[in-house]
Write a protein that binds this DNA or RNA. Structure first.
Lengths: 130, 130
DNA sequence: TCCTTATTGACATTCTATATCAATAAGGAT
DNA sequence: ATCCTTATTGATATAGAATGTCAATAAGGA
């Protein structure tokens, strides 16, 4: 299965790289629609999936909310605003090797972990205090 | 809004307490249907939601799979099998106070965190080696 | 026993994501 | 430059989880 370079895939990648805001598939679709109104939502989903498989971007699965897509592909933590859903990178002093701390994995062969902080983002805190 | 004790809510709570397997709403519905075939799926969802609000059980949001419900309401880690989706409690030596390690929260008021390990459960490992 | 209204059951709807499939176009071969 | 194969697209249907709607029911206090 040889991959072909399509304008649609280029637009999807460009949008994720330019937005840098952990956009959802729908936000990416809306962004691309401005320039290319004929693009299909399915094409956006497909190309996001493909770009993730190629390692060009990374899918961040957020419990209880739609997946978001990250231009950064390294491991790092995120915080999700429980009010508006916004996702932000969180810098942690020194992420402990959690897997090494596991006392009883009940036979699980652990391959990775997913750490997301919950909180309220600066904008929502400001709105709340009005 | 005074709460009323209904047989349906009692059945939902009983199922979660008895199963002790982080069941999904649908698994709970299937379990109750054996005894009470007339129960509605919506009633199961509603009562799970209500029992969570009352703090009797806890919702565990699993990225990419349906929510699961826990008879244990304390904070602890979970592992999800990436093959069959099963969720198991994971005992950690000493869960580090991750929030204390946050170097730059970008203005977020952090209120909690969600830590889930990914891996392959014992049963799926066995099947794989056949 | 009556009355108020929380709750139920049935169904529709929303939302996220993927599957299907004929039409299109990428890009190597000629 | 033209042809050909097939990866990819756009449109639409479908799946799956969860919530919303609303008339009918039943909990539980008066």
């Amino acid at each position: 299965m040889i991959k072909r370079n399509t304008v649609q895939r280029a637009l999807v990648l460009e949008a994720v790289l330019r937005l840098r805001s952990h956009p959802t598939a729908d936000e990416i679709y809306a962004e691309i629609s401005k320039i290319c109104p004929s693009i299909s939502r399915a094409t956006v989903y497909r190309n996001l999936q493909q770009l993730c498989e190629q390692g060009e971007i990374r899918r961040r699965e957020i419990p209880g909310s739609p997946d978001r897509f990250d231009h950064l592909t390294n491991d790092h933590c995120h915080a999700r605003c429980t009010l508006c859903g916004k996702v932000t990178d969180i810098e942690v002093e020194k992420v402990p090797d959690m897997e090494a701390l596991v006392k009883d994995d009940h036979g699980f062969a652990i391959s990775g972990m997913n750490l997301i902080f919950d909180g309220i983002c600066p904008e929502c805190r400001r709105k709340r205090n009005d």
